[in-house]
């Protein structure tokens, strides 16, 4: 429908252009023919452009439709649980014991937030540091070595991270601190590494887009490299860095496979960082294979919550970017 309106709008455009241009060309006969030829080509190009435009529109539509379909599907499947349990008891209930009819996901929410926060505290500085190194400190050779390594981190499937955590990290943590090694500590370490590429790459982009003149200005005033990074470059890139961190948070809270392999998966708020725990994502993987009835509906309800969390992150990025533009 919007499409149709666009088409007619464009249809009118070539004619409107043709009129004034031929009028202007009238006093100069030699140029006149050249202009007419141009108009013809524009017609052909116009058709091609219209076709391409619709093609891209289609691509965009598929993406939007995908999101909408998932949302509707998950929404329809999960919505009844809010009616059944009540949205406040669902979100605020302290016990998740679905086979006994307890559908409180508060522990899962808290566990997810704990996992994300720890990963961010460890991985955020690591990632920003890596980005500063790549953009401001590294020699071209060091950069040629480190950057592909960081990009490779992003390409490793999360099950491999989980496997690495399970066979390598978990025993070490068990040896060092006792217990089985399933718990927040292991998850934090794994997730911290997993969010590095997301945050580092975007932070590096943000730093690289700070104009060179600003670095020169700072150095020329007698600032050291450290002062320049800390007082000028990081503040100048701040909006981009915040966006990067929010995307990293999304990555951490949404991660499932790697977490399920090392979290131990007990549906309580863990007493300490070495005790097993279950999150919003891992509960779905663990329970979906056998869940039925209200239990199954509740899992879809959890998916709705995950969806809402993603939406909050995306909205936050948009708001922050707009705010950044205004402050300029």
């Amino acid at each position: 429908m919007a499409n149709d309106a666009d088409l007619t709008g464009h249809d009118a455009a070539p004619e409107m252009c043709a009129d004034p241009s031929s009028a202007a060309a009238a006093p100069q006969p030699p140029k006149h023919s050249a202009r007419r030829a141009l108009t013809k080509i524009t017609r052909g190009t116009y058709l091609k452009e219209a076709a391409l435009k619709n093609l891209f529109l289609l691509c965009a539509f598929v993406a939007v439709a995908g999101v909408a379909l998932i949302f509707i599907f998950v929404g329809i499947k999960g919505w009844p649980i809010f009616g059944k349990v009540g949205i406040f008891d669902f979100l605020g209930g302290a016990t998740w014991f679905p086979t006994k009819g307890h559908f409180g996901i508060l522990p899962l929410i808290i566990n997810s937030l704990l996992a994300m926060t720890g990963a961010l505290v460890l991985g955020g500085p690591l990632a920003v540091g890596t980005a500063v190194f790549l953009s401001e400190v590294a020699s071209p050779r060091a950069r040629a070595l480190v950057r592909p390594a960081v990009e490779l981190l992003a390409g490793i499937p999360s099950v491999v991270y989980g496997f690495f955590g399970l066979v390598l990290l978990r025993p070490i943590i068990a040896d060092l601190f006792g217990g089985l090694g399933f718990g927040l500590l292991t998850v934090w370490l794994i997730l911290a590494v997993m969010i590095v590429p997301t945050i580092a790459t975007l932070t590096e982009d943000a730093l690289n887009s700070v104009p060179e003149g600003i670095r020169e200005a700072s150095y020329s005033m007698g600032a050291t490299k450290w002062q320049t990074i800390w007082r000028v470059l990081l503040p100048a890139a701040k909006i981009g860095i915040i966006d990067a961190i929010i995307l990293g948070m999304g990555r951490a809270i949404g991660e499932t496979m790697a977490v399920v392999m090392v979290a131990g998966n007990a549906s309580v708020i863990p007493a300490d960082v070495l005790k097993p725990f279950l999150t919003l994502t891992t509960v779905i993987v663990m329970d979906m294979p056998y869940a039925s009835g209200d239990h199954r509906t509740a899992l879809f309800g959890v998916a709705i919550i995950l969806f809402v969390i993603s939406m909050i992150f995306v909205a936050a990025i948009r708001v922050i970017s707009r705010f950044g533009k205004r402050v300029g």
Binding site: P211, G213, I214, E216, A217, S218, Y219, S220, M221, G222, V232, P235, A236, G328
Partner: peptide, 15 residues
């Protein structure tokens, strides 16, 4: 550089 300051062709204030 503290004692010898510099002004560039393109104005380059910090953001």
């Amino acid at each position: 550089r503290r004692r010898v300051g510099m002004i560039f062709q393109q104005p380059n204030p910090f953001p």
